[in-house]
Design a binder for these strands. Sequence first.
DNA 1: CCTTGTCATGCAATTAGTTGCATAGTAGAT
DNA 2: ATCTACTATGCAACTAATTGCATGACAAGG
Lengths: 183, 183
Amino acid sequence: MAIEHAILVSLAERSASGYDLARRFDASIGHFWKASHQQIYKVLGRMEGDGWVASEVVAQDGRPDKKVYAITLAGREELALWTSRPTPAEHLRSEFAVKIRALPFGDPAAIVQDVHARRSAHLDRLAYYEQSAAKHYPRPDQLDDAEIGGWLVLRGGLLAEQAGIAWCDEILQRLTASEATER
Amino acid sequence: MAIEHAILVSLAERSASGYDLARRFDASIGHFWKASHQQIYKVLGRMEGDGWVASEVVAQDGRPDKKVYAITLAGREELALWTSRPTPAEHLRSEFAVKIRALPFGDPAAIVQDVHARRSAHLDRLAYYEQSAAKHYPRPDQLDDAEIGGWLVLRGGLLAEQAGIAWCDEILQRLTASEATER
DNA sequence: CCTTGTCATGCAATTAGTTGCATAGTAGAT
DNA sequence: ATCTACTATGCAACTAATTGCATGACAAGG
């Protein structure tokens, strides 16, 4: 019970087709909640049955028809109700952390490579967030109510990426230090 | 294909029953990979079929028998092989972030409460990590190879919790500031 | 002309994970 | 006496999510 709410938020911000949503879940919202297009289409169907969203087929020229979904009043009510319920504790699921813990039983050189790859992925996302912040929120000290949520989520992403980079640096420092000693 | 590896790491560190593993997945390893006992028992059965682990029934007095699992040679090989494969990009799934983004469509007071709750959960885990670090790694500048993985994962947890607290503080600052203005 | 990429929607099969239930003995508290 | 909590293992039913496949039109590059 959560992808529904991510979709509701996205549709509350702006109506969209399943395809549009899939792209949003590849980018902005997708940095905090991933979903494949198959999953989105399936859940949209269920949500329409529940009356949370309504669809309208829109013909396009030079492109296939699309089904544009909009949030309904019932959908908005559900969304508000959801925000009023406490968020259940979320549990990380970090394969990377498990792999770091597996250091004594594995291939240190390969793991170091992995850390480098992860570090550069963090850097990429950090750059993306910074660009996104500069573009969409040029005046963070003067945000209106509609913008505050998006801004704060971006800030969270930024802080998380910075922490991730710091962790990678610490790992690399440890691992390359011991490597140097071994020689 | 990942809970298997978390179990393999845990068993490589020390043999254990399903029950023991479930408790580990409630604490140490569980901070980075959660698993219920039902799932653990199911996966252990499959892993035994694959020859990655072997079990032995141990009778106890005053307590039910237990099935102690140990990692096999094949299991160690699989574990090493896994560390040599690159880790697929992991995607967060933060219901909390979605809820923050839902701020303009929801109940701000309830969300503020949620942020407070999350902040104190972060503080609790931070305290746990700090205690754990002091207890198990009193000399972080003199770690041997077997300890390095556990230490680095703890460090990652610490950094993540600190970043989480900083985020909560930023959110609360924003939200309580706007609340003050409204009056 | 042919390939690759984008737009657009979806089904089917499988795997992963959650929820609920069942059993059974011991220990400690009320 | 009774209730709660801990140790210990597991099945069954369900829901969520992934993987693989299918279709079809248009646009751009080689």
